[in-house]
């Protein structure tokens, strides 16, 4: 455990399944304590509740029971507006399926982040793309970019607003291992530089190399692990 201050804390978090065909709880009493600047990896099989947890942390969903504190703010007391603002200013998102807006160019996709944060700055957006190695491809639409390039744009979008926290859901899930490794290096590197807290949900074992902490999720519960050894991919 690092000695830095806590930026994310959950207390006895429970979440009920809402889709058909699932009874019971997706999360069963999850307690989390993540410090500022930490890079945390969250392992687990599909359906183990990893994405559910991410969505709860981002304020996109509400827990059935329990408390979530982000940067000393209780998520439960924030209204929809408060959570929206949270996502605007304090959180960056990187998804598995890139999730770029298909009708906006790479530059516009990145700029979107800044616009929402209230500081539209085209220069900054372009710079951000440069930093992820996409200089010259600002005006390309997503369908004109490779999978790896699309993920880079997503990372640029998340990073450009300098959020304290970045949540990444299987950031390399859709990429070949070589590209995936590049992306991981880029993402974690940038976060370290900026002191951004990064929580990654992943299948890939090589993710552990870049992480400060490894957490395993099984049947809705969290277990702390020392390393990735022995973890099933």
């Amino acid at each position: 455990m690092s000695m830095t201050s806590t930026i994310i804390r959950t207390h006895d978090l429970w979440k009920q399944y809402e889709t058909e065909g699932h009874d019971g709880m997706a999360l069963r009493g999850v307690d989390l304590d993540i410090g500022k600047g930490q890079i945390v990896v969250l392992f687990g099989k599909s359906g183990s509740g990893k994405t559910t947890l991410l969505n709860l942390l981002a304020g996109l969903d509400e827990p059935t029971r329990g408390r979530i504190e982000i940067d000393n703010g209780d998520l439960g007391t924030l209204g929809e507006k408060g959570r929206t603002l949270l996502r605007r200013h304090k959180l960056g998102f990187v998804f598995q399926f890139f999730n770029l807006l298909p009708t906006l160019t790479a530059e516009e996709n990145v700029l979107l982040s800044l616009e929402l944060a209230g500081r539209p700055d085209e220069g900054l957006a372009r710079e951000s793309l440069e930093l992820v190695g996409l200089a010259g491809k600002e005006r390309r639409f997503p369908h004109e970019l490779s999978g790896g390039e699309q993920q880079r744009v997503a990372i640029a979008r998340a990073l450009v607003k300098r959020p304290p926290i970045i949540l990444a859901d299987e950031p390399t899930g859709n990429l070949d291992s070589a590209t995936g490794a590049q992306i991981l290096a880029l993402l974690t590197g940038r976060c370290r530089e900026a002191g951004t807290t990064l929580i990654m949900v992943s299948h890939a074992l090589n993710t552990c190399e870049y992480a400060d902490r490894v957490l395993r999720m099984t049947d809705g519960r969290i277990f702390e692990e020392i390393s990735c050894e022995g973890l099933a991919p």
Binding site: A58, L60, E80, K81, T84, L85, R87, R88, H89, L91, F93, F95, N99, L100, L101, P102, L112, S113, L116, A117, R157
Partner: peptide
Amino acid sequence: RRDAGIFLAIGASR
């Protein structure tokens, strides 16, 4: 729907 989801996720309001 999907685009709406993205927007909401990155901080646009409903």
